[in-house]
């Protein structure tokens, strides 16, 4: 086990905890909006920690930049998807100016 492996194990492990929390929220929370909250918050943080952990295994600067780009794209994508799903599940009377 090299010196870079310890931060990888710790960070990806912590990331998995957040993924589990997000999944638990998805299963346990009562309505769409709170489920979305659990998924987007916990999973984005979890992915960020996994990406950070994997960065310690990267070989050079370019893979680190690619991993960062993946994280940013996933965050932006999930934020947009969360907004659109949340809007689609609003009650009909709040629904006038929807997407």
């Amino acid at each position: 086990m090299s010196a870079a492996d310890l931060p990888t194990v710790v960070l990806t492990g912590a990331g998995l905890v957040f993924f589990c929390a997000g999944a638990a929220g998805m299963v346990r929370f009562p309505d769409t909006h709170s489920r979305l909250h659990a998924l987007t918050k916990a999973d984005n943080l979890g992915l960020g920690l996994v990406v950070l952990g994997v960065m310690f295994q990267a070989d050079g600067v370019v893979p680190v930049l690619k991993l960062t780009l993946i994280w940013i794209l996933a965050i932006v994508g999930s934020a947009i998807a969360a907004q659109i799903i949340a809007r689609a599940t609003l009650p009909a009377d709040l629904h006038e100016d929807d997407d």
Binding site: I80, Q83, I84, D97, D99
Partner: peptide, 12 residues
């Protein structure tokens, strides 16, 4: 397709 011109989807 309808999307609000200043909405999140249009910005994305």
């Amino acid at each position: 397709q309808h999307a609000r011109p200043d909405g999140v989807l249009a910005t994305f």
